[in-house]
Design a protein around this nucleic acid. Structure first.
Length: 414
RNA sequence: GGAGGAGUGGCCGAGUGGUUGAAGGCGCUGCUCUCGAAAAGCAGUGUCCCGAGCAAUCGGGACCGCGAGUUCAAAUCUCGCCUCCUCCGCCA
């Protein structure tokens, strides 16, 4: 969430930003709730002050009937104020939490059509067989039995393709560990507090992309970003310990409801896939720098594997609520003759960290909210699509990218 | 899953209804002493909210796992929940 004080001081800007991000929220409603909430809080505090005075007067002496009577009436008034406060506060919190993060100054406005290409790498290959047809021919993937076992958009990877996935993972993991990231495995379910704190819709609301566990305050994670965001909840971290660089590996579970249509074929959009994710906690003034670093690492991976891509600066209307700025790497698809999303990295500034109360103690002693960032190292199902499309051979074999061979017993062809 | 015990500040730990935001210790910071260090001594050392102030800061409120309740008054009593520890059961 945003800082209410910031919203009070920059109401117009926040209203405009909210609109730019595609949200229909009236900030004035929040401002009015805020004023009302503070007014009630002030009155409650005054009642408590009086209560404390009375209580202090009765500490030594014998009980005083008049003071006890006043205390009783104060109690009634206070209960009433507290009920009023609770009601307003619930409404206020809900609204405050729904306001999206402020976009960075260099984020293009508009929807996904306004994403700006900022870099390009590699030659755009032409002509290739659809990854699913190619893989099915080799008996490398089985969606039919996936559906039998779990339903549509579940799958089994088989044989060499499953081994290739593992090779990409191992290569990426080695790379990220060399970069100084601490590798972690993470809980695959999180509480609703962490889920919504990370900026994901909690529980089973219709819009939610997450699977909730019946009868428990738990949801399956859609990315390791979610548990990693919660990792330091309610902690104050020493300035000297920042940045904290983590890499989490996990399956990602997504309902993907309502996303049928383009690019849903095969492994590109599925209910479950494995992903290695970077996560960083940074000093506020360093997060822009860290963001560039995360992007750089993602580029190194795809350059090393040898996949043509471009980097886009995602437009405001296409950003998630927690992101201030997001870069996507889109690989070149010789099947669709266009760029398709492969990885993504976001600077969430202090949006997630304020939700989960993650702070830094500066050398000066000052305590402030720190910044969080996340980025894909490799999203495995999609990585397989990219490799299948770009490294397929005319004879139906698959050339193994050189950097992956050490993880496949040196094999050059699959 | 069952039985028992416990959850207090950065850490250890006192505290069973009112002068406790919280003793004492450790740690940390500053100062004194010293050529310097150690030791010793002195002082300081939580977070959040509201309000005032340019600011240092000041006034009020909240917080002793979380949430309810009893009471004029709750860290302290009652209930529910969560977590941890021990024992039993089960088990990769």
């Amino acid at each position: 969430m945003l800082d209410i004080r910031y919203i009070r001081d920059n109401t117009k800007l926040v209203q405009e930003n909210t609109k730019n991000k595609g949200y229909d929220i009236d900030i004035d409603v929040l401002i009015k709730l805020d004023a009302k909430r503070r007014d009630i809080q002030k009155k409650s505090d005054e009642l408590r002050e009086r209560r404390n005075i009375i209580s202090a007067q009765m500490k030594n002496g014998k009980p005083n009937p008049e003071l006890i009577a006043e205390g009783k009436s104060l109690k009634t008034e206070l209960v009433e104020k507290e009920n009023q406060f609770k009601k307003i506060d619930d409404e206020y919190s809900l609204l405050l939490e729904s306001i999206p993060n402020i976009i960075a100054s260099d984020v293009p406005l508009g929807d996904e059509n306004n994403n700006v290409e900022i870099k390009k790498f590699g030659d755009q290959k032409q002509g290739a067989i659809d990854h699913l047809d190619f893989a099915i021919r080799r008996d490398w993937v089985d969606f039919e039995r996936g559906a039998k076992v779990a339903g549509a958009k579940f799958y089994f990877l088989k044989g060499d393709l499953a081994l290739l996935e593992n090779a990409i993972y191992q290569f990426a993991l080695n790379h990220i560990v060399k970069k100084g990231f601490t590798f972690m495995t993470v809980p695959h379910m999180v509480s609703s507090r962490v889920m919504s704190g990370a900026g994901f819709a909690p529980r089973t609301s219709d819009q939610s992309d997450e699977y909730a566990i019946e009868g428990e305050d738990l949801s399956l994670i859609a990315t390791a970003e979610i548990p990693l965001t919660g990792y330091h909840a309610d902690e104050i971290i020493d300035e000297d310990d920042l940045p904290l660089l983590y890499a989490g590996y996990s399956p990602c579970y997504r309902k993907e409801a309502g996303t049928y249509g383009k690019f849903t074929r095969g492994l590109f959009r599925v209910h479950q896939f494995n992903k290695l994710e970077m996560y960083a906690f940074s000093l506020p003034e360093k997060s822009i720098e860290v963001h560039e670093k995360l992007l750089g690492i993602e580029e190194e991976i795809w350059q090393a594997i040898g996949i043509s891509y471009h980097v886009v600066n995602i437009a405001a209307g296409d950003l998630g609520a927690p992101a201030a700025k997001k870069y996507d790497i889109e690989y070149w698809s010789p099947v669709d003759n266009m760029y398709r999303e492969l990885t993504s990295c976001s600077n969430c500034t202090d949006y997630q960290t304020r939700n989960l109360n993650i702070r830094v103690r500066r050398k000066s002693g000052e305590v402030q909210i720190l910044h969080s960032l996340n980025g894909t190292v490799v999203s495995l199902a999609r990585s397989l699509v990219a490799v299948l499309e770009n490294f397929q051979q005319k004879d139906g074999t698959l050339l193994v990218p050189e950097v992956l061979r050490p993880y496949l017993n040196g094999r050059e062809l699959l």
